[in-house]
Design a protein around this nucleic acid. Structure first.
Length: 298
DNA sequence: GAACACGTGGTAGGTCTCTA
DNA sequence: TAGAGACCTACCACGTGTTC
């Protein structure tokens, strides 16, 4: 059976999607041949004859994952995720990542791109996750030397937007407690602030019987650490010299000169908060409610 | 009362995991 | 492999306690 030149068939996602019974049989045969070839290449005994091995390799079988794409008898892909040629394929993709960095100045390939490189980058992060999880049975092709090469290139295994697992957060909580003596973590804490906010929010839902990420086990774990579930005002906050309304107004004029508008983000510092407060006061003023805003000021 | 400091809630958007 | 849902981060709007 000459699978390569006598057939006109389109198995685009071989061997998972099959287009007809005949193609299904072909795909099944290909799967078997590829598997046997892979065993042969790993030095295992097979019934394949030399000629058969040669013919299979000539048409693109690699003993890994090979994709038969169509009527011209071409095979695509290689042993991505396979056993035999993983390192070579990895080097090839690493080269592509280097090219990407040269062109873009960073290694943050958008995972939504749907390209070979984006898929590969996502795979590296998944394998990194498997590695650090240390869970038995989880296999990872990523070793220390590959991780080092990626790190040296500036690759981020945990890009912005990815999240920490509960276990990782708990490790950080323990560290925080060891360093600070308690678990009273301010919500603006760089590493744990968002987590603290989320836990407190979930805890409220949990107490109300609403669906959330909090469980009895997690609650117990946090209680054991002395986690503060209800945030409160911090009495020992730093007090800085406040500025008068007029001084803030002058700051706003300077801001407008520099930026062309008075749209100051609320989180951009004192001026942002002051501008926000003015908007609140102005709303009240317009509604006729009691407010700091005066006709002169607005 | 004004300004400041900090917390909460809503939500958008990204990643991961599971399932069909 | 695609879609759905869970999980998480970041940002914004707003409320409220504290300090002067």
């Amino acid at each position: 059976m000459n699978v390569c030149s006598s057939r006109s068939v389109q198995i685009s996602t071989w061997p998972h999607q099959r287009h007809s019974e005949e193609d299904a049989a072909l795909a099944s045969w290909m799967l078997k041949q590829n598997h046997v070839l892979g065993r042969h290449l790993m030095g295992m005994t097979t019934r394949l004859k030399k000629e058969q091995i040669s013919r299979l390799m000539n048409v693109g079988f690699e003993g890994g994952r090979t994709k038969f794409v169509g009527g011209d008898g071409r095979f695509e892909g290689g042993s991505v995720g396979g056993v035999v040629d993983f390192d070579a394929k990895w080097d090839l993709m690493f080269g592509q990542l280097q090219d990407y960095k040269n062109e873009n100045g960073h290694c943050n390939v958008p995972t939504s791109a749907g390209t070979d490189l984006s898929n590969w980058v996502a795979a590296q992060r998944r394998m990194y996750g498997k590695l650090i999880s240390g869970k038995p049975g989880k296999r990872s092709f990523l070793d220390a030397s590959k991780m080092q090469r990626l790190t040296d290139l500036g690759f981020q295994f945990r890009p912005r937007g990815s999240y920490y697992s509960w276990e990782e957060q708990m490790v950080e909580l323990v560290k925080y407690k060891e360093e600070n003596g308690d678990c009273k973590i301010p919500v603006n804490h760089e590493r744990l602030g968002s987590f603290v906010k989320l836990v407190r929010r979930d805890y409220k839902k949990y107490v109300q019987g609403k669906k959330c990420g909090m469980t009895a086990a997690r609650e117990a774990e946090l209680h054991a650490l002395g986690f503060v579930f209800e945030g409160g005002k911090t009495p020992e906050r730093k007090v800085t010299q406040p500025k008068s309304w007029e001084e803030r107004y002058q700051d706003l004029i300077r801001y407008k000169e520099q930026n062309g508008d008075t749209i100051v983000p609320q989180n951009s510092g004192r001026l942002g908060q002051w501008v926000h407060a003015q908007r609140v006061h102005y709303k009240k003023f317009k509604k006729g409610e009691q407010s700091q805003m005066t006709a002169e000021r607005h």
